[in-house]
Every structure is written in structure tokens, then in C-alpha cells.
């Protein structure tokens, strides 16, 4: 549905987005991650046709957004970064305007308004003026605007920003539900959101894509990913170490502790053989009659991966 090819955006001498390429299919939810100022919003603005790219192109539903913007824009629902709304209108008036801009008039318009008001929990403020709304309501009003024409493509810039935990949860459920038959791109810097919602995530740093994969693949980049930690009671550390070293699936082994409690971390010899190492460790423990307290495969933490990939610049900036 969305294809981004070699997208570049310069602001004067500064290159904000540098050769970004990716694509999103129907049924996919792409999480867009990156530190502040990495180029997430700029990329989204190019996808939605607000900024023309310096070079490269964006194809939305078969239409090049530069050459054929209007049919392309019809397919997109867009929530800009700060969720701007016309503050001199009521919520209903604002949504009616958005509906009419999308070619919905009369009964179809009212129906569309009712649908998004239900989805975004706006019933209680429907006839209130936008400038009297709290941040959460204003945010959801703008989100409702992006859903009003039931678009096949959603581009959402920080859709859960400024919401309370319950509302965040609701929006995530909404995204998941929509994700089945729409193509969704959303940016966030909340990493748990990526796990909860995305089918794929892209990490962008200083204008470049530095990682692109499923959340599980990204986690696998973690240095601890795939390693197994175990805790054994009542066996000498030396014995544990020898036995672990002898295991064919084990690579590096770190053992700590005294006679009472021994904790060990075993790294796999070949990186991604999920579950294998844990299974052979549990067999080993059974054979040796170890009293096993804990046996856990480390999945890797996304935030660590995120930090290790994007840290260099921040570290430089801090010094």
C-alpha cells in the first residue's frame, strides 16, 4: 500500500531524512521509532504529501504522491504530530468539516461522525468547542478526523501522546483491530507500544533507517538475547561450570556464586536456535540431579537495543 523509495529531505544545509526506503502492506502495522529529531515526523509529512521530498518518491496505493497527490491523499488518514484542530469549532463541526472534505455529505456524513465518535469516545464532548477540550480529548478529536473516511491507510504521528494509560490501551486496541485490513504507520517513542501493537518496526536515527524487522527480530539484536540464565541450589560452582562447558550447544559460560546458590548465564554457540539451549540445559540438570530454581531464556529488551543502536549521537551531544 505504501512504498517509500530513497526518500531524502534537506532543510537548507541540514539533511533531515537520508535515503529512507521501506514499504508497508495491507494488514501490517509498522512502528516508527527513533529519538527526537531523528526524522520521523519529516518522513511522515512526506508520505502524506505535506512536504515534497528533496529526492526519492512515495507511492501510496499505486499513486505517486508528488505527481498524483489527490487520489493518493484520499486513501490516507493522517494524525499530525501535535494533533492540531480548528479551535473555533465544536467537535461535531470539526468532524463534519473533515467528512465533507473527504466527500461525505448529508446522511453519510452524520453516519461517519457517529462511527468515529464511538471509536474515539467523544460522545460527552460532541457539542463542546474544541478550545475548551482537555489535551486527551483534543488528541482524540484529531484522531477521529483521521478515521472519518475509513481510509485503507493510516499515518499516525504519536497517536498515544498525551493520553492516560486507559486511553493508551484503548487506542492500541483500536490500532490492532484496524491493523487487520489497513496499512498503518505510526510513530512512537514508547517501546512497549511496539511490542503490544506492531507487526514490524523501523528504527530511524539521524535521518537513516538503522533497523527494520519484527519486534522479535529487533530484540534478537540484544547482546543477551538467546542466552539462558539458570540458578542451581546445593551444587558447587566448579561442578556446574565444568558440566556447562561440556555441553555442545553452549558457547560462553559465566558462573557466579558459592556452594549454596549458583547462578549461571549460558550463551548459545550459534546465535538463533530458540529454545534449544534451554531444553538441553534442563536435560542436563535432570541427568545431574541439580536442584534447578530458575531457567529462563532472555529475549532481549527493546529499549536496550534501541539505545545501543541510537546512542552514539546522544552520547556525543551530552559531552
Amino acid at each position: 500500500m505504501i512504498t517509500v523509495e530513497d526518500l531524502v529531505k534537506d532543510f537548507g544545509p541540514k539533511r533531515a531524512v537520508n535515503r529512507v526506503s521501506f514499504s508497508v502492506q495491507k494488514g501490517e502495522i509498522l512502528g516508527f521509532l527513533g529519538p527526537n529529531g531523528a526524522g520521523k515526523s519529516t518522513t511522515m509529512r512526506m508520505i502524506t504529501g505535506f512536504f515534497p521530498p528533496t529526492s526519492g518518491r512515495v507511492v501510496v496505493g499505486g499513486h505517486d504522491i508528488g505527481e498524483n497527490p489527490i487520489p493518493a491523499k484520499r486513501l490516507i488518514g493522517y494524525l499530525p504530530e501535535s494533533a492540531p484542530c480548528y479551535s473555533d469549532m465544536t467537535v461535531h463541526g470539526f468532524l463534519a468539516f473533515a467528512a465533507e472534505m473527504r466527500g461525505l455529505h448529508g446522511a453519510a456524513r452524520e453516519q461517519a461522525i457517529q462511527r468515529v465518535v464511538g471509536l474515539c469516545f467523544l460522545e460527552s464532548v460532541l457539542h463542546q468547542s474544541v478550545d475548551t477540550l482537555s489535551k486527551g480529548f483534543r488528541h482524540r478529536t484529531c484522531l477521529a478526523q483521521s478515521l472519518i473516511h475509513d481510509p485503507p491507510i493510516l499515518v499516525l504521528d504519536e497517536p498515544t501522546d498525551g493520553l492516560d494509560p486507559n486511553q493508551k490501551h484503548e487506542i492500541r486496541q483500536l490500532l490492532k483491530r484496524f491493523g487487520r485490513d489497513k496499512a498503518i504507520i505510526f510513530s512512537t517513542h514508547i517501546l512497549e507500544e511496539v511490542d503490544a501493537v506492531c507487526s514490524r518496526a523501523i528504527i530511524i536515527d539521524r535521518g537513516q533507517v538503522v533497523a527494520n524487522g519484527t519486534p522479535a527480530e529487533l530484540r534478537a539484536r540484544h547482546e543477551l538475547a538467546g542466552s539462558v540464565s539458570l540458578r542451581v541450589q546445593g551444587t558447587a560452582a566448579e561442578t556446574v561450570r565444568t558440566k556447562l562447558h561440556a555441553l555442545p550447544a553452549a558457547g560462553r559460560v559465566v558462573v557466579q556464586g558459592d556452594a549454596a546458590t549458583v547462578t549461571a548465564r549460558v550463551y548459545p554457540r550459534d546465535k538463533p536456535v530458540n529454545g534449544d539451549l534451554a531444553r538441553s540445559l534442563s536435560e542436563l540438570a535432570q541427568r545431574e540431579g541439580w536442584r534447578l530454581d530458575e531457567l529462563r531464556t532472555e529475549e532481549g529488551r527493546l529499549d536496550d537495543v534501541f539505545r545501543s543502536i541510537t546512542r552514539p549521537e546522544t552520547a556525543k551531544g551530552a559531552e
Partner: peptide, 13 residues
């Protein structure tokens, strides 16, 4: 206010 972004990403010229 930033609504310019909203307006110009709608399917209008």
C-alpha cells in the same frame, strides 16, 4: 496552530 498540515494533506489542491 498547525492545522495547515491538516488542511494541506486533505484531498484538495
Amino acid at each position: 496552530v498547525g492545522t495547515l498540515e491538516l488542511l494541506l494533506t486533505m484531498p484538495i489542491s
